[in-house]
Simulated assay, not measured.
Amino acid sequence: MSSPVATAVSAAAPYDRAKALKEFDETRVGVKGLVDSGIKAVPPIFVHPPETLAELKRGSESESAPEIPTVDLAAMQESRAAVVEQVRQAASTVGFFQVINHGVPEQVLRRTLAAVKAFHEQPAEARVPVYRREVGKVSYLSNVDLFQSKAASWRDTIQMRMGPIAVDHSEIPEVCREEVVEWDKEVVRVSRVLYELLSEGLGLGAERFREMGLGEGRVMVGHYYPFCPQPDLTVGLNSHADPGALTVLLQDHIGGLQVETPQGWIHVKPQPQALVINIGDFLQIISNETYKSAHHRVLANHCNEARVSIAVFLNPSDRERLFGPLPELTSTKKPALYRNFTLHEFMIRFSKKELDGKSLTNFFRQ
């Protein structure tokens, strides 16, 4: 006769990850809902594999570690060529840099972060109606790759398409509507300047990227990283490379963003009023690998205060046009490293993978 303990063990249902994911998603209140419930331990769906956690521990923690470059756009008044060179150097090495004196008023930066934070910190019943996974609409969700990733990340997101055809502004939650629309205008202005500098850094005309419409497709995401009770077991955002051309990021003072460099993982330390800029896979490809996209990640938030960041992903607007390494940047000495593709094919490929690795650039390599 079996013992009561053995019977209980054999009767215990095995852990059903698919069921747990579905149940979490159906709460429609995200990670913030878990935190509000008073949870003291990270649920199994958020626990990352040992190899991922080991890699996190190898990240640079030294205060003397190198930092990503900072570019002062006001210096263009004295020497535009010097600023072009700074941008070119950053884009062709680490693929990340911060810009200061970009012309966005400090109160706009503060107001935008506060508005996105206010959305995520509304009562659950105010967030639930916006929770959805449909592409193209205003959507509040937890983990865009929730059902594809090996483990979920400790964050929630509101995402909005801002171009080439923006979502109806009435669909943007009122608590952040005015600020989101205003922020999109600022990003358009700043990105025009950045694209000119990046284009000149390749020896092209200042208008080359603008003529390609590289800033017309825009998706804005407002990430919210609440306090994590066990930050050593999960991440805020998996290591990944952005698929688009350029990303403009506004982050608050909490920190946690890291970028992979030849020297190892380094912190992207928050600077007051700075914007973080990074090269995406698309720009790496059309520059024929002169510019580099980089792996980056966000650590789980161990602070009692939530971390907020707002990224705008910039892409071409024409999804059927053929793109590839620009002819001006290829030669017999440096042939095209990638094949041509449409943006539609490019983004379909991205949507089929989880947020890790650099399979996009690998997939299109010749």
Rank of each mutant, 00 (worst) to 15 (best):
N143S: 12
P243Q: 12
T52R: 12
L322I: 05
G222F: 00
P14V: 11
E289V: 06
C228F: 06
P123Y: 12
Q77I: 03
A13S: 14
Q122D: 10
N278Y: 02
G201V: 05
R133E: 11
S62M: 03
V312A: 01
A54Y: 06
A115V: 04
D252F: 01
Q230L: 09
K358Y: 00
V130F: 15
R307A: 06
E182C: 10
H223R: 09
R210P: 00
P49H: 09
A274G: 06
I45Y: 06
P164I: 02
E345M: 09
R349K: 15
F341P: 01
V128L: 08
K292M: 05
L197G: 09
Y131I: 01
M162A: 10
H302S: 15
H295M: 15
S191W: 07
L249I: 12
V221R: 11
S287R: 12
G222M: 04
V108N: 05
E61P: 00
V193G: 02
L343G: 04
T342F: 09
S60E: 13
V190W: 11
P173D: 07
P164D: 01
S293F: 01
T112D: 07
K57N: 13
A65F: 11
P226Q: 02
K19N: 06
K334S: 12
Q366P: 00
N304F: 04
I100S: 03
V128W: 02
Q107A: 13
A294E: 00
A90N: 10
V9Q: 13
D232R: 09
V5Q: 14
L329N: 05
G236S: 06
Q159S: 15
L326Y: 06
K333Y: 09
S170T: 08
I165Y: 10
V29Q: 08
P4K: 08
E207K: 14
G357P: 07
L275T: 01
N101M: 04
L21P: 02
H102A: 02
L233A: 06
R297G: 03
T332G: 10
